[in-house]
Computed example of a mutant assay.
Amino acid sequence: MIKALPSGESGWQAELRLEFTQRSNKTVLAKRHQRGPLAIQRPFYPEAGVCHAYVLHPPGGVVGGDALHLHFKVEPHAHALLTTPGASKFYRSAGLQAAQHQQFHVNDACLEWLPQETIFFPNAQAVLTSTIHLQGSAQYIGWEVYCLGRPVIGETFQPGKVVFKTALYRDAKPLLLDRLVVNGERDLFSAAGLRGQPVFATLLATPVSPELLETVQPFCEGVALGTAGVTLLNGVLIVRYLGNSTAQAHRLFRTIWQAIRPAVNGHVATAPRIWNT
């Protein structure tokens, strides 16, 4: 059972609020509020008009009792691409819940949320929620790559519990409501669960046409270290990966991102500099 944080006992309570606006054909970080150990590096402009920024969590890991809140708002005609410089880690817990909550609001603008992977150590107790609100003609590309345990050293996730929730809306209408609970051997190894694979990942992109779905399908065939599939639901491209390699998941998603970005938001893919380090 995941326990709520007792009164008077607290971990890191961190919050990062960012607002991006368009000024003179350039997206700028117009407002920033941070509390606790969440921060953002100075924005970069490797491509015309698009603001690239890196979200930082200096402690390097999340433990029971910690709560991280990310709020991103992108105003009309602005275009922000955010990523992280390294993997996020949720450490083992004696029972207290750790949490990460993401709230994105994109108003006739474009947001790309392309973080590195999130690793969950054995005995982690966590809940992760992502809520994306799109308005008007807003465009969104985002992914999450999760790794249960550390398969490179033979470490499995058991025991532990993580709850994942994703909700995507356009003009207050739900386009995608997704929920997954991983709690114990049955969820990890059953055919209806993760089939014994420690890495699972999801890429979302919208708006997307049926023609673009056909473009992506070949990328999901014959994945060497896992399986992948793609579908189109309510104008949202949904790509899922299940396997044993975060590197494979990232290669797949970056390849798809490069292929679909011009059609989704009109920009040729320009990778964040941090991906080359």
Score class of each variant (00 low, 15 high):
Ala259Asp: 11
His267Phe: 09
Lys73Trp: 01
Gly60Leu: 14
Asp108Ala: 09
Ile274Trp: 07
Asn107Pro: 08
Ala172Lys: 11
Ser137Lys: 11
His77Glu: 15
Gly136Glu: 13
Leu213Val: 01
Phe90Asp: 02
Lys3His: 12
Ala124Val: 02
Val208His: 01
Val264Asp: 14
Gly222Val: 00
Ala53Met: 11
Leu70Trp: 03
Leu204Asn: 04
Val162His: 04
Gln217Asp: 03
Lys3Leu: 10
Gly136Arg: 11
Gly266Ile: 01
Glu112Gly: 04
Lys173Phe: 14
Leu82Trp: 11
Val50His: 01
Asn276Gly: 14
Thr129Trp: 11
Glu112Met: 04
Val199Leu: 05
Val127Ala: 15
Ala138Glu: 08
Arg17Glu: 15
Pro272Trp: 07
Leu203Val: 09
Pro58Phe: 01
Gly65Thr: 07
Ala124Asn: 07
Ile141Phe: 09
Leu225Ile: 08
Cys110Ile: 13
Thr227Pro: 10
Pro198Asp: 03
Ala4Lys: 12
Val199Met: 05
Leu38Ile: 04
Lys31Leu: 11
Ala4Arg: 13
Ala94Thr: 11
Gln248Val: 03
Phe72Met: 12
Gly149Thr: 05
Gly149Leu: 04
Gly266Leu: 02
Phe104Ile: 05
Gln103Phe: 06
Gln41Asn: 06
Thr118Pro: 00
Ala259Lys: 09
His71Trp: 10
Val236His: 02
Arg32His: 12
Gln197Arg: 06
Pro6Tyr: 05
Ala224Thr: 10
Arg273Leu: 09
Val145Gln: 05
Phe44Cys: 04
Thr118Tyr: 02
Ala271Asn: 10
Pro46His: 00
Gln158Trp: 12
Gln248Asp: 05
Glu47Arg: 00
Asn265Phe: 10
Asn123Val: 09
Ala126Thr: 13
Pro76Lys: 03
Phe90Met: 02
Asp171Trp: 01
Ala67Val: 12
Leu225Asn: 08
